[in-house]
Each structure stands twice: as structure tokens, then as C-alpha cells.
């Protein structure tokens, strides 16, 4: 069953840059997919289309039965409630505790306090941070902050977990731990995972589906895994 269905999608920015060109792909429910490619190849634009931070210029983007292209700004929250998003820069609120950061989204859904508490504790337990509920983000290591970010993303039990370079700021050992957590979420909860990454080692070790983009065009879609992106022209 297709959870994401993209057909002949184009994204051209106002400055004339074509970030995505004639992209068609589908992702099944429960799949784990890596999106790779050199910087500026359109990876981040692709995930932004999935969580409707950007609208496609042309074509169709269906996520969990919602047509993203036709979604009004005031209705975007309905899509976002089905998703969990993990960022490279964590995007945690420094003045809130770990517990408050994870509970942040749920509180605005009007759930009862005891339900929020049990869900937050469950999510923090899954990422191994049950003991740090009262800590503030600046008291945590980079890996721990990213795990809080994952807990916040999964606390609402989303159908899709979007990870935009979640290990970009982390050392190799911590990166592996983070990937392990995300992989377990995919396996145990059946959550579809779309992960943008540059990390060859992680991609090669996971043997998951790998989508490679080049100048906004899909150049490779390997079901067997393996890092195929040519990053020889990557801007450093």
C-alpha cells in the first residue's frame, strides 16, 4: 500500500532555480528509505514537499492520502499531525525541559494530562532518555538532544517519520546509536521512514532502499541499498 505517491513533480523556486524536475516515485507503508545526493541536489526540497513546507510547482504529491499541492496553509496542521520530523539542528526549545519539549505538540491537541504523560514517558523510554525528563536541552549532549527530537517526532505515533540529516552534527558512534533508534521505530511501530543523509557508512550498513537525486532528477532507486551518489562535485 502506497503511503507516499509522487507523480511528475516539479519544484521551481521564485529565483528560477529548479530544485525538483519531473520526479515520480512511491514509498510503501512501513518502508525505510534513504534519500541521498550531493548538496543542492534537491533532497531537502523533496522532504519539504512531504511535510508541505514547500508546495510543488507542478505535479502531484500525495502523503497518507492527502494531496499536498492542494492543501491550504490553514489546513497544513492536519498533515503535520500524521508526521514526525527530525532535523539536523534539533529545533528544541531551550527554555523548556525535555519533558515539555516532547509534550509540546500533544498539549496543543487538547489531550488529557495523564494521556500526555504516559505518551511522553513512553516516547522518552523508547529513545533511552526516561531519566532526563527534567533536564534542559543545554544540559544534554548532541546525541541526547537528537534523541529528544526523535521522541518529540514519535510521541504522536506518526505514520511517517521524516529525518532531514539527523546525524549531520553528530560523531560516527552517536550517529549509529541514533540510526539504531530510528530503525527500531520503523521495525516495532511500523512507521514509514524517509531519511535524508550524506553518511555513506550508515547507508551502506543498513541495506535499505536508497533514492539518489542529482540536480533535482532521480538518478537511482536501489531497493537493495548501497550508497550510489556521486559527490565528486559536492560543494564543501
Amino acid at each position: 500500500m502506497k503511503f507516499i505517491d509522487i507523480k511528475n513533480c516539479y519544484k521551481v523556486y521564485k529565483n528560477g532555480v529548479t530544485a525538483i524536475a519531473d520526479l515520480s516515485l512511491s514509498i510503501e507503508k512501513g518502508e525505510f528509505v534513504f534519500v541521498t545526493g550531493a548538496s543542492g541536489c534537491g533532497k531537502s526540497t523533496l522532504v519539504k514537499l512531504l511535510y508541505r513546507e514547500e508546495k510543488p510547482t507542478k505535479g502531484q504529491v500525495m502523503v497518507g492520502g492527502i494531496n499536498v499541492a492542494k492543501l491550504y496553509n490553514s489546513r497544513v496542521y492536519k498533515l503535520r499531525r500524521k508526521l514526525g520530523i527530525v532535523f539536523q539542528d534539533f529545533k528544541l526549545l531551550p527554555k523548556l525541559t525535555v519533558y515539555e519539549n516532547v509534550a509540546f505538540g500533544l498539549e496543543n491537541l487538547g489531550l488529557k494530562s495523564n494521556i500526555i504523560k504516559s505518551r511522553v514517558i513512553k516516547a522518552l523510554d523508547r529513545v533511552g532518555l526516561k531519566e532526563k525528563t527534567r533536564s534542559f536541552p543545554n544540559e544534554l549532549s548532541g546525541g541526547e538532544q537528537q534523541r529528544v527530537c526523535i521522541a518529540r517526532a514519535i510521541v504522536n505515533e506518526p505514520k511517517l517519520l521524516i529525518c532531514d540529516e539527523p546525524t549531520g552534527n553528530l560523531d560516527p558512534k552517536t550517529s549509529k546509536e541514533i540510526i539504531k533508534v530510528i530503525n527500531s521505530i520503523n521495525k516495532d511501530m511500523g512507521t514509514t521512514v524517509v531519511m535524508v543523509t550524506h553518511d555513506k557508512d550508515i547507508v551502506n550498513s543498513m541495506k535499505k532502499r536508497v533514492i539518489t537525486l542529482e540536480n533535482g532528477v532521480l538518478t537511482s532507486d536501489s531497493k537493495k541499498g548501497g550508497y550510489t551518489a556521486d559527490e565528486s562535485h559536492k560543494n564543501i
Binding site: 490553514s74 496542521y77 508526521l83
Partner: peptide, 17 residues
């Protein structure tokens, strides 16, 4: 503004924000 951005990302409606 980060707080507002995160609120939007976690699916908070505009009214609730």
C-alpha cells in the same frame, strides 16, 4: 519565532498557535 516554527512543525493549528 523558533517556538512558532516548531509549533507549526508539530501540527499545531494556526488558531492554537
Amino acid at each position: 519565532k523558533n517556538e512558532i516554527e516548531i509549533m507549526r512543525l508539530v501540527g499545531t493549528s494556526n488558531f492554537t498557535i
